[in-house]
Structure formats: C-alpha cells, structure tokens
C-alpha cells in the first residue's frame, strides 16, 4: 500500500517532463520514421515503402555525407580530447594568473555558435583575414588561400574552428577529473622513482578513465549533430563538399523541400548514433569488468 503511494507520487513528479518528451521528441521522431518511407515534397506524397531505402543506399550523396560526418567527428573529438587533456594539465599547475586563464579558456565554449562561425569566417577571409596575412609574413604561403571556398579545404577549416570552439568542455571535465586522482598514488610513485611521464600514463590516465570515457561519448554525439558552425561558415559548400548530416538534412528539407529524403538521412543519422553508442557503452563496460 505504502509502495503504491510512493510509486504514484514518483510518476506524478516525472509526468510533466515525460509528456513534453513524448509530444515534442518521440512523436516527431516517430513521424520522421514514417515520412522516410514516402516520396514527400511540396508537390508529391507517394508511399514508397522499402524501395525508398533501396534508392537511398544507391545514392552516392549518402556515402559522401557519411564520410564527411565521420571525418568531421573523429578529428574534432580526437583533438578536443588531446587539447582538453593538455590544457587541463597546464591549468592544474600553480602559476600567476591561473584563475584568470581558467576563466578565459571557457570563453570559446560559451560563445554562441553563430558568432564563433562569423568570427572565424573573418579570420579565414582571403583579403580581410589575419590568418593569411600572418602565414604570408611567416613565409608559409606565398599568396592568400581561400580556406572556406576550396572544396578540399573547407571542411578542414571548419573542423579547426570546431576544435577551438568545443575543447574547453573537455578541459573542464578533465580538470575536474585530475582533482579526483588520489595524491597518495603520486607520492607512492615518487618514492618508487617513477618519473612524471610514467606517472602520467600509469596513474593519471587510468584514474581518469571513467571521465574520459564519458567525455568522449558526449563530444562524439554533440559533434556529430552540430549544425551551426558548418551552416554558418560554408553552408555545406563549396559544391556541397563540406556537408555533414545535420546541415544536409536541413538543406534537403528547407531549401529543396524534399522532406522524404531529409527524413531518410535523419533516420540513418539517428540509427548510426544509436548503434555506435550502444556498442561504445557495452565495450567500455566490458573492459571495466575485466579489470
């Protein structure tokens, strides 16, 4: 009896968020799945069934977008992790201005994505941008490069910006993680004569494994679905060379009004992330059990 009452109040507490979630997230997601079986645009609304997916998998665009999305996500996540760890190690040292630098480092992450995109468009600009100017002074390039309007560079230029924009999140997480490493471990290692490099790989990294695991997964999902930077900086161009899933889905839906195609790309995006996350969580849990 007592239990039932507690259950009821539990459901009552979570009900508002559950209702919102169903109406605003799961119902639309379900509709996207339904739309994905249709040839749907402003002028047609025809049921295709699995044929729709057969067509999708014959579409070379799918493989291009997939390749771009993976390149984008893997490079951004990898370098954010590296920079995050590096900057956390620096900020953990004592030096004058440490608190100030900690406040400063978080700014790129806090800055609205659209603004970060615009600022970097200015930096990359062939005429107004300082990047080309400095590279020329240093003698690295002999004429201004059109970073954002060359098909073989545009995606990488945005990747660099995304690394800059997002790495402070990793810094914050790793800095918190570093503070959780028991100092006795280092003291013991010091007595055993282990140098700092050894301490880093045998104490710091293993103790921080849980937080690194979670941070990698979070940044992977966020980066894979990050819309603003690519949209604002290149719009997926030039010649659609820098499109990733979210920007391409948006383009299909609201520039070309091909709602069916957009839904199919969205379904692939979602299923990929779902399978990836399940796989990731399972393997990391397994390896933890084996320890």
């Amino acid at each position: 009896m007592h239990n039932k009452k507690e259950w009821a109040s539990g459901y009552l507490f979570i009900l508002p968020s559950l209702i919102l979630l169903i109406i605003l997230v799961f119902y639309p997601l379900f509709m996207t799945f339904i739309y994905s079986f249709y040839d749907m645009s402003l002028v047609s609304n025809r049921y295709l069934g699995w044929e729709a997916y057969q067509k999708l998998f014959q579409n070379p665009k799918l493989y291009l977008i997939f390749k771009n999305s993976l390149t984008w996500t893997i490079l951004v996540v990898f370098f954010q992790c590296l920079l995050g760890l590096g900057s956390a190690l620096i900020l953990q040292q004592t030096f004058v201005g440490n608190a100030f630098l900690r406040g400063l480092v978080i700014l790129p992450w806090v800055m609205p994505g659209v603004i970060a995109g615009m600022a970097w468009r200015l930096i990359y600009d062939p005429h107004l941008g300082l990047l080309n100017h400095y590279l020329q002074i240093l003698g690295i390039v002999d004429r201004p490069l059109t970073w954002l309007s060359s098909p073989n560079m545009a995606l990488y230029a945005v990747i660099f910006t995304a690394i800059w924009k997002g790495f402070p999140f990793s810094t914050i997480m790793y800095l918190a993680g570093l503070q959780g490493v028991p100092s006795e471990l280092y003291e013991a290692a010091e007595i055993d004569g282990a140098n700092e490099v050894k301490q880093f790989f045998h104490i710091t990294i293993p103790s921080m494994k849980p937080i690194i695991t979670v941070t990698l997964l979070l940044t992977f999902i966020w980066t894979f679905n990050y819309f603003e930077l690519v949209y604002v900086m290149t719009g997926g161009g030039p010649a659609e060379s820098s499109h990733i899933f979210p920007t391409y889905i948006y383009d299909l839906a609201f520039k070309r009004f091909r709602f069916g195609d957009a839904s199919r790309f969205a379904v692939v995006d979602f299923l990929f992330l779902l399978i990836f996350s399940l796989f990731y969580v399972r393997t990391t849990f397994k390896s933890e059990e084996n320890l």
Binding site: L21, V25, F224, F270
Partner: peptide, 22 residues
C-alpha cells in the same frame, strides 16, 4: 524512462524539425 530521456539527446534536432514544423 530515464534512459529514454537520455536517448532523446542522440539525434540531431534536424531529425525532428520537419514534423515539428508541420
């Protein structure tokens, strides 16, 4: 239910924008 809540973070907002628009 909590896992459902976390799952909702798994897809891009672009994936639900067409139904939401409708």
């Amino acid at each position: 239910l909590f896992i459902l809540l976390l799952l909702s973070q798994l897809f891009p907002l672009a994936a639900i924008i067409v139904p939401l628009y409708r």
